[in-house]
Amino acid sequence: MSAIEQQTIQVNGIQLSLHIAGPESGPPVWLLHGFPECWHSWRQQIPVLAAAGYRVFVPEMRGYGRSSAPAEIADYDLLTLCADIQGAMDLFGHQRVAMVGHDWGAVVAWHLALLEPARISALVTLSVPFAGRSRRPVIEIMRELYAERFNYIMYFQQPGVAEQELEADIERTLRLFMQDQDVFLQQKPPTASLLGGVALPGALPAWCSQHDLEIYVQTFANGFRGPLNWYRNFERNWQRTEFLAGRQVLQPTLFLIGDRDPVGVFEAHTLKRMPEVVPQLEQHVLANCGHWIQVEQGAQVNTLLLAFLQR
């Protein structure tokens, strides 16, 4: 990999850890990771973007790794997460950036595009689509849909419950998430645990070395509370984003998803409606690919990403 500099900055009331690569004069590109991931999830994109002349900024998002992990659930609402990145862009003097996000990072990226229509000139989102503000909080809908069966987002709602399970063996937890994405689609009683009864696969996937895994594990050494608190703000997010209702994402936008991604099942309706809200949308479905798209199909993601940014 090209030389990567780690910085910790004070922004929006927290310490935000950033990994930066590429020429100082290069156009800025931000890479926002999701759950349960870390800045190292972009390891295949950072050197390629830097070599192409971009200045790459990869934060450890609020609650992760060396960044601050406030205790309160409300400290992880969507506008606060966006404000972390907005404040960092202010600090670095960014006037025009390309914003790239995966999973929860994609949710933040979508909303940054709405909040910053002038400063964010291009948008790339991976795995999580967007079709505007829902008519009521998503968590209300999910409570109705999953009253009689298990859903991992509902399981994450009660503070302390998921933390106890996921933190019991962090390496096992992360390996199961990486290698058995069907855990998110399990058919079982609503009171079940997420990973109970799921067998640990043998070898790591080809895209994750033991060294890579150790970086992921270190990210969660302080626990899962902060990252899980992102999931506990659906109602607050809906309330606080009312002023964005009806807005379109007008930036040129690239959307990528794997053909085996469980999100494609959960968000089928959103995927269908997305072009109505994102008029300048280019989208691709990557074959033989699950949810961890930027590492599972890194070369293809890089090709599509570079071509899009250069256009």
Rank of each mutant, 00 (worst) to 15 (best):
R175G: 06
S127G: 11
V124C: 02
L174P: 03
P189H: 10
Y146K: 05
N151H: 15
T125L: 07
L185V: 06
A192W: 04
E140H: 13
R135K: 10
T173G: 05
H211M: 04
R175F: 08
C208T: 11
V198P: 02
D182H: 10
T125F: 00
V124N: 01
D169P: 05
P190T: 07
E144N: 11
V183L: 15
W207R: 10
A131R: 10
E165F: 07
I139W: 05
E171P: 02
E214V: 01
P159I: 09
S134T: 14
S209E: 01
H211Y: 08
V161W: 07
Q187C: 02
F156A: 08
S209A: 08
I141S: 12
Q181R: 07
I215P: 00
G132S: 05
E148H: 12
M142N: 08
R149V: 01
R149N: 06
A131C: 13
V138L: 14
E148S: 14
P129Q: 09
A168K: 14
I215L: 15
A162H: 05
V198C: 06
A192V: 07
Q210F: 00
M178I: 11
F156V: 02
P189M: 08
F150L: 06
I141R: 09
E163C: 04
D182V: 00
V128N: 02
M154N: 15
E171I: 02
L195I: 01
P137M: 03
R135I: 07
S121T: 15
A203D: 13
V183D: 08
R143Y: 05
